[in-house]
Amino acid sequence: MKRFIAKSPRRAAVMLFSVLALLWASPFFLALNASLKSPKEYNTTGILQPAVTISFKNYVESWVGLEFPLKVMNSLIISVGALVVSMVMAFFISYAISIGKHKWRSFVLATCVVIFLMPQEAFAYPIFLVSKMVHMYGNVSFLIIPLGITGAAFATFFLGNIMSHFPVDMLEAAALDGASRTQTIVRVVIPLMMPSLLTVALLLFVANWNEYLLTLLLLPDYASQTVPIAVAGLNIGDAWKPPAMPVVAAASILGAVPSFIIFALFQRSLIRGITLGATR
């Protein structure tokens, strides 16, 4: 492709944008730096000076104070549980409309788009009432239901688009070989679609993990909170006394680590998944 900028200015542009990208992540670097300082050092040197004596005391304090492993478990239960529900529902719906070419295809897809763009706040209070009615208010597992169902709309939309490109002749070949529908699905469709299924599952996992509304409203007990809410609650100070600045920083970094790990491992799949959904 013909470059519109000669080499030197292009190198400058590369440097500029690389630095910009680094700057974009700077809040995390600042928090990281602050989290490694002892409160005393922090009070004297502030946020910007690089930490001189690296201490992990803040992390230990956050880990213990947040009951971090428990929060991770809560988040995991909800994220995985909901994504399984969503994937199962979405698989059936999108199979029917894309491979089965059900006549309601446009209607179903349009409905799913509208559902997943709806403000969750419109469902929040009724869901709260339901949780009270079934005496599961404050129960971590309860959240699997609303998150699983609304996630199904999102997943249906994605899978519906992907499945419409499925090679139907494979299915016919399998049918000719005498496979029942179940066998075809298990032996042919799922293996072929595995990368896409995993990508959608990943997107659902991240969305569920980062969920901020229902987890805030339905999990009042400290012990039942998810990671993001526990960290945010720290700042609001209802967990224990408003902690020192470096501790809040450490807690934020700690809370961000799981997401960061997932992102680092799956960046390509994640971004590919998002962009796939954007190009119908």
Partner: peptide, 18 residues
């Protein structure tokens, strides 16, 4: 890409707190 997309990956409750 990762640098700019990072804010979307970390839970908003945490980045908001940050």
């Amino acid at each position: 890409r990762g640098g700019f997309y990072l804010p979307q990956v970390i839970p908003i409750a945490i980045t908001g707190t940050l």
